[in-house]
Design a protein around this nucleic acid. Structure first.
Lengths: 357, 357
DNA sequence: CTGAAAGCGCTAACAC
DNA sequence: GTGTTAGCGCTTTCAG
């Protein structure tokens, strides 16, 4: 009987538990155990549809695979096929921020969905490391590389990156024809402002960042667009600037209070967090005395401030996922501009409907 | 001349710019271009020291490599050598927390240092995904697998994981002989308490978490040890419990104030953040009316609260790095217990020297 | 329906 | 000093 045959000369039980070190089970061994050729085993392993294999043979092979604990060798497979199932992700800061993790997560999920595994490298902004990382990926014949930055910014394209199929994630290049995916800062700024507008506010301050960045320009642009759409003339006095962190927000408070506004849109959540403290020091309460919205949706902060902060979220997960899709050619890539990903609104309770004056 | 020869039949310039799609340059092509055998090229590429290659040949090969833009094929290399230069990292939550990022970062740096690349997979706690991820890694013949969790906890060992060389990171198993690396919660708890003790506090409350975890037990144990070492009898009244987040900390405030303490050690930073709000609502100031320390050192929170929070940091980066070292056998692994990594103290200004009563 | 054999790009004996 | 050659584990015609 077939089943008898299988268990004849092989240390079945032991192999089942764990292929002994240094000698993984190979296709050939499976073939021998099943009494067929390697070609046949290959065909059943890969479920080739146009392969006419008898049911019995198929079963015999399947059993041998189980018994021996066979695992295909992906390296050999790749060697033959020429292209690997890897997508490389190089990031400039994995640890510094919770954001990079989201990009990785999105990329990994999407890659996985299409049968790809993620090879990651953290360069911490170091050019040599970056070069080595890209070389490594190239040597592993990755399908392509996602080059990402933790904050949205313009970037140079490293020379070696050009050897691969690549897309820029959360960064962009002025070089024409470069595929890139970035957050839609202007839309985000518009959304943030609109939260306030929708609740009846008319005099809305915007505390922008002091440091130059696409986010700085985009978020301001969105603010202006929203006001204009609402028919509110822009009062330059209401656009302030502060360093984009807690301290900056805190220190901007006195200035803000001179502006006689009922609402403020902060460049980011950290700034809003500082502003919360500042407002409290002045005996003001949110949202009654002042409505506040932020930007970034940094969970730890925004969701847990008192009151929880309405904000707009940076779509890092989506950036990673869209990057993969673009790399694999599953998504249109406009040739002369970065694809902009929507920044969704996250409403919490730091804004309340304004009583008509 | 040699240089003449090189550039004769080959589209050198084009190849230099970018190896045309679908046909990467191979060792053999380099050999032909340089007029030597593949063995020679291999020797040059790998800098084999005991290879006697003439300086001219070496140069000829080097030039050909440059001209053609040759990249070794890591897959082929691996196939031959039998073992890959990959280390797998499976994580249950890459994005949910900033912590997982640190583990990845530490693992990737350390792996890199030893010539390994990191293959990562996010399982989001899904068993099937996890199995697939491990299979994938096994097929790529990873050197070993780091199995990590985002918070410190006991875990089951997935069956397929046993087929690989593995170490548990930030989690542990009761099975004897399992290598694991975890944070030293008790030491962390001791350190947190000692910050307060060192500043002259004697009546110190500990707000523990309500949910069971190794951290809950360890951090309490550390608190007790520190008090005992300081000769302060444990007052059970001073050990409270709350849900370990901002809301929990906020809500625990009234209870805390009944205890008549001068200092409080919170289970984590988020709880401390809530407590800050609670204390403020009661008109109390930190550190004058109450000294506060947290645990976790969540940057966004701890470093930027007003006043900045003294805390103890969870060594995620180190966990990842130590995991890799253990996997590669570069670090002793006690056979019957997890290796405990130190949780370093981070002192900021939420504690001040206590005026003697 | 299944087997034989060539070859993916590279390394490592072993020749010369 | 350098070339020849035999595989590593697998896929894929092409025979039968």
């Amino acid at each position: 009987m077939v089943s008898k045959e299988k268990s004849s000369g092989e240390p079945v039980a032991a192999a089942f538990l764990k292929p002994e070190r240094g000698h993984p089970v190979t296709l050939r061994e499976v073939a021998e155990a099943a009494g067929v050729s390697t070609a046949t085993v290959s065909l059943v392993v890969n479920n080739k549809k146009d392969a006419r294999i008898s049911v019995q043979t198929r079963k015999r092979v399947r059993d041998a695979i189980k018994d021996l604990g066979y695992r295909p060798n992906a390296m050999a497979k790749t060697l033959v096929s020429g292209s690997s199932r890897f997508i490389g992700l190089v990031a400039d800061a994995i640890a510094t921020t919770p954001f990079a993790g989201q990009i990785i997560h999105g990329a990994q999920d999407e890659a996985w969905r299409h049968g790809y595994a993620l090879l990651i490298a953290n360069t911490e902004g170091n050019g040599d490391l970056e070069k080595d990382a890209i070389s490594m990926m190239l040597e592993y014949k990755v399908r392509g590389i996602l080059y990402s930055t933790w904050f949205h910014r313009p970037t140079e394209i490293p020379e070696s990156l050009r050897e691969a199929d690549f897309v820029l994630v959360n960064c962009f290049s002025t070089e024409p024809g470069t595929r890139a995916v970035v957050p839609d800062e202007a839309q985000g700024g518009r959304s943030a402002t609109e939260i306030l507008l929708r609740h009846g506010h008319r005099r809305i301050a915007f505390i922008n960042a002091t440091i130059p960045a696409p986010a700085k320009d985009g978020r301001l642009e969105g603010y202006k667009e929203a006001l204009e759409a609402a028919g509110i003339p822009l009062d330059p006095e209401l656009v302030m600037e502060a360093y984009p962190d807690q301290e900056g927000g805190y220190e901007a408070t006195p200035e803000l209070l001179k502006r006689d506004v009922t609402a403020v849109y902060c460049y980011n959540d950290r700034m809003a967090m500082g502003l919360y403290d500042g407002l409290r020091d002045h005996g003001l309460s949110i949202p009654d005395d002042m409505a506040v919205v932020g930007f970034d949706n940094q969970e730890v902060i925004a969701a847990h401030l008192r009151p929880p902060l309405s904000t707009v979220s940076l779509p890092h997960y989506e950036l990673g996922a869209a990057g993969v899709r673009m790399l694999l050619g599953l998504e249109e890539a406009p040739s002369n501009t970065a694809v902009k990903i929507n920044c969704p609104t996250v409403e919490r309770t730091s804004v309340r409907v304004q009583a008509p004056a």
